[in-house]
């Protein structure tokens, strides 16, 4: 168990170190979400007067699209020099590889989300800083990372891998997107926390189920 976690940590910190050096994933996601915010503003000029109607939904649209961008890279980087095979050849459980990649994706997407939030506040002139948003954000992002990581591992072995991931990812993620957008809108309207317990429960179940299922399926997906 200890060596399992140590190896998860080794792969995770390798990903973080690479990312800090190249900033490839983070910069792509951050620039993309900035552009999305700008596009929203130009496309919905009338809504600037009533941001509470649109901001929760737009936030999750931006997170979803930016997230897919980063998820795609996470396995393409491994595939380019065959290093994914290097990982598979090492005495590491397949599930540890999934767990490490998933945690890396979770960290990167969360960072970009935290960068996007002030942008939204600033440009829509509507504060989205609310402590109640944090659990919604983290739990939703965990779901993104879990499904996104296994789908990225699947898509990387296909043709048109970069196009395929969003096509696979969005429909399956809909429960999280629906629940998270609803919860965000309730939190930002300062409605009582109890009102979003149903949504949080759903996201929680999603997170739990899709932590276990991909851990089991990962071997099937990457082995021949």
């Amino acid at each position: 168990m200890k060596s399992y976690l140590y190896k998860v940590w080794a792969i995770f910190s390798k990903d973080v170190r690479t990312e800090l050096r190249t900033k490839e994933i983070l910069s792509a996601m951050a620039v993309f979400s900035l552009l999305m915010v700008l596009v929203f503003i130009f496309a919905l000029p009338g809504k600037l007067q009533e941001p509470q109607d649109v901001v929760p939904g737009l936030l999750w649209i931006a997170f979803t699209f930016a997230g897919v961008l980063g998820l795609n890279r996470s396995f393409i980087i491994e595939k380019d020099r065959g290093s994914l095979e290097g990982l598979l050849l090492a005495p590491v459980d397949r599930s540890a590889i999934f767990l490490a990649k998933m945690l890396g994706n979770f960290a990167f997407i969360t960072i970009v989300e935290l960068l996007t939030l002030p942008l939204f506040s600033l440009l829509f002139n509507y504060s989205v800083f609310n402590l109640g948003l944090l659990p919604v954000l983290l739990m939703g992002t965990l779901g993104f990372a879990e499904i996104g990581t296994i789908f990225a591992a699947m898509a990387v072995n296909t043709r048109a891998r970069e196009v395929l991931l969003p096509v696979l990812f969005f429909p399956v993620m809909l429960p999280v997107i629906i629940a998270a957008a609803q919860a965000t809108s309730a939190v930002l309207a300062n409605r009582p926390f109890g009102e979003i317990s149903g949504q949080l429960q759903l996201i929680g179940i999603f997170d739990l189920v899709f932590l276990i299922v991909p851990l089991l399926l990962f071997e099937l997906v990457i082995e021949e």
């Binding site: 499904i147 296994i150 699947m154 072995n157 296909t158 696979l168 399956v172 899709f210 299922v213 991909p214 399926l217 099937l220 997906v221 082995e223």
Partner: peptide
């Protein structure tokens, strides 16, 4: 393999 994994999920 991919079809199977996707079907389960």
């Amino acid at each position: 393999s991919l079809t199977a994994a996707f079907g389960v999920i």
